[in-house]
Amino acid sequence: MKAAHPTSSRRRRVWPWVNGACLSLVGLVFALPLAWMLVTSFQSETDALSPGLDLPIDRPAAIISQAHQNYRTVLTDESVNFPLLFRNTIIVVSLGVTGTVVSSTIVAYGLARVRLPARRAMLAMTVVAMLIPFPLLMVPQFILYAKLGWIGTFLPLFAPFWFGNAFSIFLMYLFFRSLPAELEEAAQLDGCSAWTCFTRVALPLSKPAIAVIALLHFTFMWNDFLAPLVFLVDRDMFTVALGLHFYQSRAGQTPWTLLMAASVLTMLPVLMIFVLALRTFLVSTSAFRHASPETRSTSPGRASTSHRTAGRGAH
C-alpha cells in the first residue's frame, strides 16, 4: 500500500475511522438483544410494556429491588421448579461430559497411535456418524430406549456418551495426530506400554485439547432442546432449556419481565464459562480447521504458527 496513488495517504487516515464506525455499529447490533433481555428482566411489568427505555437509572435502589423481586418470583414459581431443573441439568451434563471426555480421549488415542485393522474404516464411520441428522435417529432411538426401559430416566441423555461422541473423537484424533510421534517412541524404548505412553506422555500434553472438547460438549448438552423434549416425560426431570419453554408456553400468560429473568438464569452458566474460558472457546472453533491433515501436508509448520496467532488474537 506504499503511496501507489497520491490519495493513498489520505485514505490511510480515513479507513480506521470507517472501520471504527462499522465495528461500533456491529457491536451494538449484536449486543442489543442480550442487553434488552437484561433490561427487561430488571423492569416492572408496566415499565416493560411502555415504549422507550423505562429504567429509573437515577434510583439504583429501585432497580435492584425490582430485579430481586423478578428473579425471586421466577425461582420460587411452583409450576416450574427452576432449582430442581438446574439440579437435573447439572446431573445430566456432568455425567455426559465426563463420559465423553474419558471415552473419546481413549478411543481417539487408539485410532491415532495404536496399530489397528480397518482403522480408516473406523474413522470414516466416525465422520458419517457426525453427519447423520438427529431427526433420523430420534425415532428408532426412542423405541430402542423404550424397550431398554430408559424412558422416564436420565439415561438416554447421557449414557450414549459413555461410549464416545463422534465429534469429540474426531477432534481428539486430529490433535493426537499432530503430536510429534518421537516422544512416544522414546518412551517405548524405555519400556512403556501403549497405555503408559497414553497416560504419562500424551495425556499431560493434551490438556488444552481436552478442555476444548469438554467445553464444546458442555455447551451442546446445556443448550440442547430436541433430545430432552423427545426423551424426557416427567416434568420433574426436565432440563432448564426444556423448563424455560414450558414456562413460556404453559396456560396463562407469563409476563415478559419474568420470562426474560428466566432466560437470563438459563444462559448464565454457559455465559459465565464462556467469559472464563474465552480463549479456549475461540481457539476451539478454528482448531478443527488448523489440525486438519490437509493443512499440515501442504505447508509444514504453518498450522502450529497460525494456531499460536489465532490464540493470541482471541485473547
Binding site: 465495528l23 461500533s24 456491529v26 457491536g27 449484536f30 449486543a31 438483544p33 442480550l34 434488552w36 433481555m37 427487561t40 455447551t219 446445556w222 443448550n223 432442546f225 432448564v240 432449556a241 426444556l242 424455560l244 419453554h245 413460556q248 415478559w256 420470562l259 426474560m260 428466566a262 432466560s263 438459563t266 444462559m267 454457559v270 455465559l271 464462556f274 474465552l278 472457546f281 475461540l282 488474537g313 482471541a314 485473547h315
Partner: peptide, 25 residues
Amino acid sequence: KPVLLLVFAPTVVPLVAASMIWLWI
C-alpha cells in the same frame, strides 16, 4: 477484540433462551 466477543457470545446462548429474547423483540 471486544466486538469479536459480542459477535461470538450469541453462539453459546441456548436456542430456547434466544427464542425467548427474539419473541420479545
